[in-house]
Write a protein that binds this DNA or RNA. Structure first.
Lengths: 199, 199, 199, 199
DNA sequence: AATGAATGAGAGTTCATTCAT
DNA sequence: GATGAATGAACTCTCATTCAT
């Protein structure tokens, strides 16, 4: 069996090792406070290797964003397109994003805190994908409102931002060693959303 | 007659000018991306002046946090201690924090994004004040739950984090030139909270 | 009496010390082969000091160019505007540029070898000043041709480039410890020019 | 049928492709500003291929020098050894070096600008060949002076440097799209030399 | 109260070259 | 013959902070 050191320098390919190290460090101390030197040391490689695979430090961040965005969009699409009543689909999607976010809390911390360190061009691209995600979620709310199962008291856009605020906030307060499991938190937060939407 | 330039170098005292410049710049480009040189240039003073009034760049950030925390705590205390039914007091407090946050969107952006740039000691202090704020808000929720006017389905702590997530999130999506006034947003968000708490 | 060390760190102002060190090093090993570290070490200061006075390494080069261009233009203007027959004025100007170039052989070596390392914007500016110099010199030749004292067999532009080629070339072959004094070289080269222009 | 891309990756042997790419790039942006990566990309090969054929980046430069030196020496020898009066032989040689230099303007630009980038050992070798060339040319001048057809007012060495200065300078000002053909420039410059040498 | 020259450590990035395949 | 991953040293430039004035 493979020797697994701190930097995992045994088996995992170098690019993955670098991404993993960068993710951990960016989440811990922030993008700007993490030096390229820190990353390569954590990954057990040299700077040259990093720049062989990534064009810049910024590229690493962009890769992390891509990974998160792809995952969340796929999961949302799956839940939203399921064959179930809209209340169920919204509840499932709302709970799932919580579970997935907690499972990747480092990614989430980076996501909301470090967006602005991306180069303008990459930021634009990330925002576009983000908007697509938001719109798919909003469509679910609107569908329920049109069907009369959700209150129309609040604009759907605001409802989505309300819920995502709480997801965004998770990395601020959630601790794996706390008293609630990810699933419990997810159920509670989805419940709050659905209760708020009762007509 | 006071000369009033871009940096407001005419009338406003130097410390305030520096804080205002720092707030704007920290919100715009982040704490680490803002150099001390940027701040003093924007404030129309020299580095020596900054270090005369503030011990370090970190001190500026701490001052901004102090200002926000004091303001929010005062307002929360006033609403929570008012003479009104608990539903009303919670609704008012929940709406007020939204209005106040939008009125100081730069402060809010800094608050959630730059906390980790504080020195460990100052961070501890800020977190303690933050906790006090959270607890006062939670006490309101618990009071309503005990009185039977709020559902007990969700732990009060989680309810508070749910709402503050949405406040936190405001700096991400709210634009002053958008279609909703701060008061409208505040009313909607407070309404969502209260609706979610219906028994 | 002032202590005069290798880096002249006693009396001369820092910017001058840096320019002198940069000039020597750029001439010796070329702009690209000279590191900022080399320059500050030779000048006996730190990198921070260099960047306090000069915006970039490129700026140092530009300063050197400015110094050369100003000097040569002033001298050419003085000789060209003198009160003497055109043959005399051209001979004097042609000889003087040789003497001055030999007196500043480092500047000359840098001038012709490192122009292309300037930023595009600064290069444009240098070329414009260079052109002005060329034109003043050409005007002298044309004046003599019009007066009939110089042959018109060769276009004036080409005559100027012919002479400046030889000036340019000085830094390639002239050695202060050689057998000719700067003045002797200057007289010979001016003589060659004037003889070539005989009608 | 051979695929002929930008890098001419179809037919031309790899070493030639590399030399051609290096010549163009060195002339364009200078030796130090051209990376090995740039060269192999322009030649459509990989780094390994370059290091298979050339021992170092420096070797490429040396090859370019060798090519230029060989060509010029051969041509000078041919003209100098021709059966014609010395005035004619000098005129022909002086004009030919101009035409040949213009025909290989990239080589010329590299020659005079990048000599100092050669390793000390190779530089010594190049200088020796250069000296041989200079001496053959000088011998022509001396022959004419001894025969009384050239003025002895100027030392022959200086006459040679005078002319080569103008050749050196060509890459600074000559533009193929200008108003003079290479032959016209060559005739004018040779004429200036011969006129200067009139007794 | 305020200046601004100077520091020194460290930032992100580039690059010629090597070597196992 | 040729690859391309990886190295390690060097590069230009930035920055918070200090201190003599």
């Amino acid at each position: 069996m493979a020797r697994t050191t701190d930097g995992d320098s045994g088996t995992t390919p170098v690019p993955q090792r670098l991404l993993a190290a960068a993710t951990r460090l960016f989440a811990d101390r922030g993008y700007d406070r993490t030096s390229v030197q820190d990353i390569v040391e954590a990954a057990g490689v040299t700077k040259g290797a990093l720049y062989h695979y990534f064009g810049s430090k910024d590229d690493l961040l962009h890769e992390i964003y891509g990974r998160v965005l792809r995952l969340q969009q796929e999961r949302l699409d799956a839940f939203a397109d399921a064959d179930a009543p809209v209340e169920q689909r919204l509840r499932d999607a709302a709970a799932d994003v919580v579970v997935t976010t907690i499972a990747n809390l480092d990614d989430a911390a980076i996501f909301f805190r470090s967006m602005h360190q991306l180069s303008p061009e990459k930021l634009k691209q990330v925002r576009a994908e983000r908007r697509r995600y938001h719109e798919r979620f909003r469509a679910l709310v609107e569908e329920g409102q049109a069907a009369g199962v959700f209150s129309t008291a609040t604009p759907a856009d605001l409802v989505v931002d309300y819920h995502f605020g709480s997801v965004h906030h998770l990395s601020t307060w959630y601790r794996p060693d706390g008293s609630m499991t990810p699933q419990q938190v997810a159920d509670h937060l989805a419940d709050l959303l659905l209760r708020a939407l009762r007509p």
